[in-house]
Deep mutational scan, measured.
Amino acid sequence: QVALSRTQVCGILREELFQGDAFHQSDTHIFIIMGASGDLAKKKIYPTIWWLFRDGLLPENTFIVGYARSRLTVADIRKQSEPFFKATPEEKLKLEDFFARNSYVAGQYDDAASYQRLNSHMNALHLGSQANRLFYLALPPTVYEAVTKNIHESCMSQIGWNRIIVEKPFGRDLQSSDRLSNHISSLFREDQIYRIDHYLGKEMVQNLMVLRFANRIFGPIWNRDNIACVILTFKEPFGTEGRGGYFDEFGIIRDVMQNHLLQMLCLVAMEKPASTNSDDVRDEKVKVLKCISEVQANNVVLGQYVGNPDGEGEATKGYLDDPTVPRGSTTATFAAVVLYVENERWDGVPFILRCGKALNERKAEVRLQFHDVAGDIFHQQCKRNELVIRVQPNEAVYTKMMTKKPGMFFNPEESELDLTYGNRYKNVKLPDAYERLILDVFCGSQMHFVRSDELREAWRIFTPLLHQIELEKPKPIPYIYGSRGPTEADELMKRVGFQYEGTYKWVNPHKL
């Protein structure tokens, strides 16, 4: 086992960053958080920038500027975001240094004079007029057009580079997404736009490419001749908990499936790229999406959770019991969808996408189930092999396979070949997804960000279904809070070829 401390991990990262040409360590950078008073800024962006600063992973002359409508001070920003920093008493001095680099400007999102004030403020910072500028839009999409237009007109660096990070949702359907994309691309070049999907920053999602293309053993079996089906799962054990009003506007397909799960599907299904260059990788992902037809209604199961009468606390409440959810809402909190990649490698292999709230566990994984062994000599005792990439929690890679049961006879039983990170790298604290992705933006690497043509294809696949749901308002199937979801989803999976045995229990190697 390799035991690495946080300091050692960050030392390795620093070495990698400083050796590259793309990370300008000594240049002045300004990180501007648009929507600095909001939840995302408070819980994710400010803490992430602090962790990067604490670990010495930001360029040395980096300033952080918050911008929002609320009249706040840096002290206010500190008060609301610091509880999420997880700072230790030993880091007190470092924390003071961090907040000394912070400033805040209040202004409207659609007022040109406010942006001119913001620009004057940035120019007044040390070497601010020639600094590289990175704008993070932690804002609702309704203000994107006004904000990007004003940034472009008043706040661009004339000497350094300018980059803009856009948070999902990128529209509600193909038409609104196209409108937003066309607007942003009329102001910024594609190499300046970073559409963030934080799932692409997760260690195991990034590991998929290495697993596939750096190991000879997987190449020959990664196709329709050997793989019976692919299941991509995202499960949350909690409901909307008072935030249903926002969720109800989008629903589970827009929230998770059309982005996170579809991105994971691309990494499983794509061909080997010409290189690890950002556009070479994204070219292959677009090719996969172009091979997927629009979702067919007979390959869809929609569910909505109801309270568990035997549960406790939140578990007793259904989705419609959330006071922020519109009365009688038919918005799905669970969806199972089957897609097919219609190309030579994957023809006929079902890709089953499942996601839901208020389920029995927290889990995100990719599961490849292989065909049955031909010419069975073990009297149907063999179960199908599976390769599982567990994204969260407890990152893991393992192969479910058959071995001989101890004893006199040739009785096979299920076991696993474990390729888990935790076994080799004991207690290594890896940077989280937002840390990686923000560092990628500083480096100018777009590999783990969504390109406009990729986004367009993703919406093309799901828009007809979303429009049909909005028009017909089908009643989702009720499922109990804390269950596996509607049984109809299991029946759909069985119908397209997935075999669920229920006889195997994964042993978490992190707890051995």
Rank of each mutant, 00 (worst) to 15 (best):
Q499L: 07
Q446F: 02
E271Y: 02
V388D: 00
E294S: 10
G303P: 02
R282L: 05
L419F: 14
L302Y: 03
G328V: 11
T331A: 11
E395I: 08
G328T: 07
K383C: 14
Y398G: 06
N259L: 14
P474F: 13
T487W: 08
E435P: 14
T399L: 14
D321S: 09
R354A: 08
N277K: 05
V507N: 06
T330W: 06
L267Y: 14
K475Q: 08
V338P: 06
Y305P: 02
R436P: 13
E365F: 02
F410G: 07
E488W: 03
T331V: 10
E501Q: 10
L302P: 01
L302R: 05
P486V: 10
K357Q: 12
Q381Y: 10
T330D: 09
V256K: 08
N259S: 10
V306G: 06
S275R: 03
P323F: 15
P464E: 07
V349Q: 01
D453H: 03
V288R: 01
K383D: 13
L492I: 12
A269T: 03
Y305C: 02
V349Y: 00
E472N: 12
A433R: 14
S293F: 04
I292E: 01
M447Y: 13
P476R: 01
I438C: 04
F442W: 11
H260K: 12
N411M: 05
Q499R: 05
V507A: 12
L261M: 07
L419V: 15
N423D: 11
A274F: 09
T420G: 15
Y434P: 11
D322L: 09
F449Q: 01
E457H: 07
Q392A: 09
H260Q: 15
N308I: 07
L465D: 01
K475Y: 06
E271L: 01
G444C: 04
D372L: 03
L261I: 10
P273V: 00
N298D: 12
L267F: 14
P323S: 09
R345K: 12
V341I: 06
H371S: 11
E344P: 13
Y340I: 03
K357E: 05
Y434W: 12
L359A: 04
L262W: 04
Q369L: 15
E413M: 11
M257I: 15
V286F: 15
G356A: 00
E414V: 08
E294P: 07
P273Q: 00
D490P: 03
D440W: 02
P273M: 02
G375P: 15
P309V: 12
E386H: 07
L466S: 07
G502H: 14
P476W: 01
Y421V: 14
N259W: 15
L262T: 09
V496D: 07
A335P: 01
P350M: 00
C443E: 10
P478M: 09
T324V: 07
E414S: 14
P323Q: 06
D322W: 05
G303I: 01
G328Y: 12
N343Q: 04
H371E: 04
Q263R: 13
H448F: 15
T399V: 04
W459E: 14
L353N: 01
F378D: 02
F334Q: 03
Q392W: 09
E435D: 06
L430P: 14
L417F: 15
L265R: 01
T503V: 14
T316N: 05
S275G: 07
Y305R: 00
R484H: 15
E314P: 13
P406Y: 15
G328I: 10
N385Q: 10
E491A: 06
E416P: 12
G497C: 15
K426A: 08
V256H: 15
T330Q: 10
K494V: 07
I477Q: 10
K511L: 14
T487E: 13
P406N: 05
G307H: 08
C382W: 06
V388F: 10
M447R: 05
